[in-house]
Every structure is written in structure tokens, then in C-alpha cells.
Amino acid sequence: MNFPSWPSLLLVDVEGNGANPPDLVEVAALPVRDGQPDTTTAGAWLIKPPNPVTPFAARVHGLTTQVLDGKPGWEEIKD
């Protein structure tokens, strides 16, 4: 593959609290440049949701309401 010909990409992964509609509990971003992940500028943020994390969602991603207590809410970090 000719990785230098690839456009720059931004991979984003989100996790929710299991509600419908879901509230964010984690956002992660990984830039890809020249076909390679750029871990030097990657980031992940935990977010305290306005509603509790469901037991099912906690089993999927391991984040519980207790783990997220004390983390900033979305309004505090969205910028």
C-alpha cells in the first residue's frame, strides 16, 4: 500500500451509558497520518453522564457511574 498517498484521517470512538438516547461516557480520538497512527496527538476523555450507566453498558466497556463520578460533564469539555 502507498501510505503516503492516504489522506489524513481521524478515528473516533465513543462509549455511552446505555440509555436511549445514550449519554456519552467516553470519547477517544486517534489521528492517522501517512497511513500510520499518531499516538503523540491521540486523546481520550472520560465524561460524567447526566444519567447513570446501565449495568449492560458497564459490562460492555467497564465504565460505571461510580468510576465516572467526579469526571467533568460534556458541557465542561466539549470545546
Rank of each mutant, 00 (worst) to 15 (best):
A57Y: 02
P31D: 00
V60S: 12
R59F: 04
D79N: 14
L9Y: 06
G43R: 09
F56I: 05
L30P: 11
P31Q: 04
P7Q: 10
V14T: 10
S8P: 00
W45N: 07
F56T: 04
L30D: 13
T40H: 13
L63Y: 06
V12Y: 12
P49Q: 07
Q66F: 01
D34F: 09
I77V: 15
T41F: 00
P37A: 11
V25D: 06
T64S: 03
K71E: 07
R59Y: 11
P4T: 03
A57E: 08
L68V: 05
D23G: 08
P7D: 06
T40M: 03
H61P: 01
W45P: 01
A19P: 06
A19E: 15
G16W: 10
P55E: 03
V14N: 00
P49M: 04
W6C: 15
P4K: 09
N20H: 12
V27M: 08
P21M: 10
D79P: 08
I47A: 06
V27Y: 09
T54E: 09
V32I: 06
P50S: 11
V60L: 15
T40Q: 11
T41G: 10
D13N: 03
Q66S: 14
A58D: 06
T39P: 01
P7K: 15
L63Q: 07
P4E: 05
T41E: 13
L68K: 00
N51E: 12
V27F: 07
D79Y: 14
A28Q: 05
A44L: 04
W6Y: 15
L46T: 15
V53E: 04
P49R: 05
H61N: 06
P55L: 01
L63K: 11
F3Q: 11
R33A: 07
P55V: 00
N20T: 14
T64P: 03
E15Y: 04
V67Q: 05
G73V: 09
T64Y: 02
L10G: 00
T41P: 01
I47G: 02
P52K: 13
V25A: 07
G43I: 02
Q66P: 01
D69T: 15
K71W: 04
L68P: 01
D13T: 01
V53N: 06
G16N: 08
L24M: 15
S5Q: 13
K48T: 13
A57P: 00
W74A: 05
D79L: 08
L63V: 04
N51S: 09
P55S: 10
V12H: 14
V60R: 08
K48G: 08
V27W: 01
